[in-house]
Design a protein around this nucleic acid. Structure first.
Lengths: 303, 303
DNA sequence: GTCATACATTACTGAATAGTCATATATCCT
DNA sequence: AGGATATATGACTATTCAGTAATGTATGAC
């Protein structure tokens, strides 16, 4: 066949270290951030980067203000390198009989109420795998899936780019949760009455949920009696558990709010907030890391 | 995220050269064959192999008689390396504005009558690509597709392992071709008469075709008047062109046998020999070499 | 302009690894 | 057993590439 990648090794200048340096710079977003403390290596990183550029005859980075950004070619090469290292690293961990690490990204609520409740069962089925769970926003997850920094992501289905594969994890619905002590008398108050009269905790994030909720409230001309803002649903849930606030939470949160102390009010209004969520992954990962096939299928069945 | 593949680079002993050496040994099937002439490097290859084994803590080769064979782990690693180098080599050729090389494997007949007739059109559509066409047998093609030494293979559809993707290239039918000068009188002689009375050229290969034909002949108790054996259909076709032999050829061969000089006799008998052929590839190649997507689709439409 | 920050360049040292040669060991063949 | 072939090992050299330090240059903030 061909002379074993002669075009790669005829010239010199290619080395694993230099490739790794490019990857580090790419991941960190600049030389300074890549070397962190120990700025002594700054010059080395700069030089190795230049040597790589000489080897390939292509600009891999461009100055962007004081810092660097990868060119298109640089990003491509970084992707190739990441893919290569992933393969080798997996082989190495397998050889060392060490557990492989898989990275899963998801939002706070999904981590707390969708993933963690099943993580014990996961551990039993996959005793030789380390799961690293990262709290990320949808856009970050998508970016990390593209570059293979994450193996899996959980997010709303309609946000998943079509290049990714996915498996549905069911619907996420919302409901209003109210501490009983804040409800006067016995009778069922309406959702609207609660939101107007009870101190409410609300989400302060810039995400899709807050946007949709805002719009809904404006349309239906309900004004919520907001007295606390939180950045995540689990935080809001804690506030509600204190007994002093009501709030809109994913219905999954019910496990943390016992029925004898909290009332859960569903309303047609909330239907518009509901969304299908899914486990998503870059199809490349399945070829690179064989265990990922079973993991994806397990998540699809059990979450 | 994680500390940029710390597990790979914390220990030393990994280098591109060593990986390349393993790959060469794997491809050549032994150190001696890998170093070829220049046996001076034999010791180096042996040592680098040992260093790789020390690095991964795994046996990569085992002695098999005087020579070496890869262990299961060795094969896995070789596959990973090949995949890695493919990605880098492709990036390098793209950077150098050099045409990428794609390797296509097929049997003699398919090369001559299926591929080469369209290769001019291919060149026009893909001016920046070098096609390397290799004459191989089905088993070799499958092996090479598995290990990514070939990008594409053409073979009969029912021989394609299910892990590969494929696109049909139509049916390959067979017919008996007879030089007019060997046919007495004007009237249509039967297929059987020709095979009994005219000097025939036959295939001498161990392939699927010869086997099936043999069986057919035995069943129908036809005895062919064989006077020449060839190893490939194109060779047999040449013999027929000489005017002194008749023979069974793929109907595609008709382009080389003008109707004014050769008679083409179809017979129900030959239907049993016909088979669907297809372009096959390892799905991994599509991720590694982006151009392969368009190439596969072009072949599917135009061959 | 001045200062702080981030990257680039140069020069030199040291460590890792590739290259070579001689020779030993293992296996196959006859 | 003896010769031929293939791989393994040890000793040494040469080269490449990583590590460190000092200094230069570009950019942004004030």
């Amino acid at each position: 066949m061909d002379k074993t990648f002669l075009n790669l090794f005829a010239r010199r200048g290619l080395s694993l270290d230099r490739l790794r340096v490019l990857l580090e710079i790419a991941d960190a977003g600049g030389i300074a951030k890549a070397v962190g403390k120990d700025p002594v290596r700054q010059s080395q990183y700069s030089r190795q980067l230049k040597e790589l550029e000489e080897y390939f005859g292509v600009e891999l980075t461009r100055r962007d203000g004081k810092s660097l950004v990868l060119t298109r070619a640089g990003q491509q090469l970084a992707d190739i390198i990441r893919q290569n290292f992933l393969g080798l690293a997996d082989f190495a961990t397998a050889c060392a009989h060490e557990p492989a690490i898989f990275h899963l990204g998801a939002g706070d609520s999904l981590i707390h109420w969708k993933v963690l409740p099943h993580i014990g069962a996961f551990q039993k089925v996959f005793p030789a795998i380390i799961m690293s769970i990262r709290n990320l926003q949808t856009a970050q997850i998508i970016d990390a899936l593209h570059s293979l920094r994450l193996d899996f992501g959980i997010m709303r289905r309609n946000a998943i780019p079509s290049v990714f594969k996915s498996v549905s994890l069911g619907k996420m619905e919302y409901a209003l949760f109210v501490p009983k002590q804040l409800l006067p008398g016995s009778s069922g108050k309406t959702c609207e009455w609660v939101m107007n009269n009870v101190p409410m905790v609300a989400m302060d994030s810039s995400g899709e949920f807050a946007r949709k909720l805002d719009e809904m409230m404006r349309r239906s001309r309900i004004k919520m009696n907001i007295r606390l803002e939180c950045e995540s649903f689990p935080a809001a849930c804690h506030a509600i558990q204190s007994g002093c606030y009501a709030g809109i939470l994913p219905t999954m949160a019910a496990t943390d709010l016992p029925e004898d102390k909290f009332v859960r009010i569903e309303a047609p209004l909330f239907k518009r907030l509901s969304r299908e969520i899914a486990l998503a992954w870059n199809p490349r990962i399945m070829r690179l890391r064989s265990a990922s096939v079973e993991i994806a299928s397990w998540f699809g069945k059990n979450l």
